[in-house]
Write a protein that binds this DNA or RNA. Sequence first.
DNA 1: ATTTAAAAGCGACTATGTCGCATTATTAGG
DNA 2: CCTAATAATGCGACATAGTCGCTTTTAAAT
Lengths: 124, 124
Amino acid sequence: MKRRNTPTKEAVLSVITKAGQAMSQDAIEGEISIDINRATIYRVLNRFCEDGVLHKVIAEDGKQYFALCDGCDKTHQKHQHFHFKCTVCETLECLPNEVNFSIPRGYHVENVNCVLTGVCKKCS
Amino acid sequence: MKRRNTPTKEAVLSVITKAGQAMSQDAIEGEISIDINRATIYRVLNRFCEDGVLHKVIAEDGKQYFALCDGCDKTHQKHQHFHFKCTVCETLECLPNEVNFSIPRGYHVENVNCVLTGVCKKCS
DNA sequence: ATTTAAAAGCGACTATGTCGCATTATTAGG
DNA sequence: CCTAATAATGCGACATAGTCGCTTTTAAAT
């Protein structure tokens, strides 16, 4: 199961990198220059998540957004920072703030999904 | 726009109360004794949210879960506590832990959606 | 009883995301 | 450089979640 380099992967990653914020599949499809199948985009994105290149955030609209991992290694890839979804410009960005929590004994946390919704700096 | 009491409303609220945890539309439809249309269930749930009776949580499956509000008045109904979604028993519960965060200047937060995913106490 | 408007039912519709299968293309090995 | 293996893509179909418009029903005020 070794990964191969394909134009599709490069195009997807380039779009997300250029955007500088989390993107949904449809946003990526809209921004990308070449024509890529929807299912393929999802597969590429999920593979990037497995590889620790991207992380997935579920916003309040129930959609999946994918953001670049910044300094996440494979072993310690819990993306425990807040995300901010602006209701005006519709963008979802990673905030530097870490999520701190303590959970009751016996619970085993595998994933953290924290999204703040409101109006971002630019739009207010 | 005054609210009316209907069997549907009572049935929905009773199911959620009895469950003691957040529920999705399909779970409610499955547990409920009378036959209620899907769209109606959503409308009832959203009305309860407007009235501050329930609050809505988006889990990692992208689905909406509705949980009873505990001590939330209408003016201060930010549900800034963590939620825990168990991947084994599939339930979503409210944790007592409050969400604490500080956001960069200029951002205006309207809603908080924090969900931890993993294995709950009972299932581990 | 009558009225009125909120609530429910019904059907249709729009995503979003996934899956299976056939086809294409990357990459390693000779 | 050619070939084989298999990862990646395209395509179609599908499942599910949630919404909307319109008609009908029903709660509740007068």
